[in-house]
């Protein structure tokens, strides 16, 4: 079976759209981290700068899996490995 190039491009676009669904996970994770950080600052306002830097570090690490999905989407859209 061989497919038309346009068909493969369309399927790649659908795949790219599906790949960025990976953004759900980091969104939930970063929200949980930010919520707990807000609770921690409410309990101990003196430690605000420490809590903020720890939260940002954790969020940036949690973001990685979402970025992998984004990378897959970009490869499908712009590098077109399947065509």
């Amino acid at each position: 079976m061989d497919f038309n190039e346009n068909f493969i491009l369309g399927c790649s676009a659908i795949g790219a759209g599906l790949a960025v669904i990976a953004g759900i996970g980091p969104g939930v994770g970063q929200g949980i981290a930010a919520g707990h950080a807000a609770a921690a600052v409410g309990r101990n306002p003196g430690a605000k700068s420490d809590v903020t830097s720890t939260m940002l570090l954790g969020q940036a690490v949690a973001e990685t899996t979402g970025l992998y999905g984004l990378l897959v989407a970009m490869l499908l859209m712009f590098v077109k490995p399947l065509v």
Binding site: T64, L67, Y68, L70, M74
Partner: peptide, 16 residues
Amino acid sequence: ISLSLRLFANVLSGLV
């Protein structure tokens, strides 16, 4: 791999 991909993908997504 994860260190480099994290930095790369963040900057690339901003650029795009």
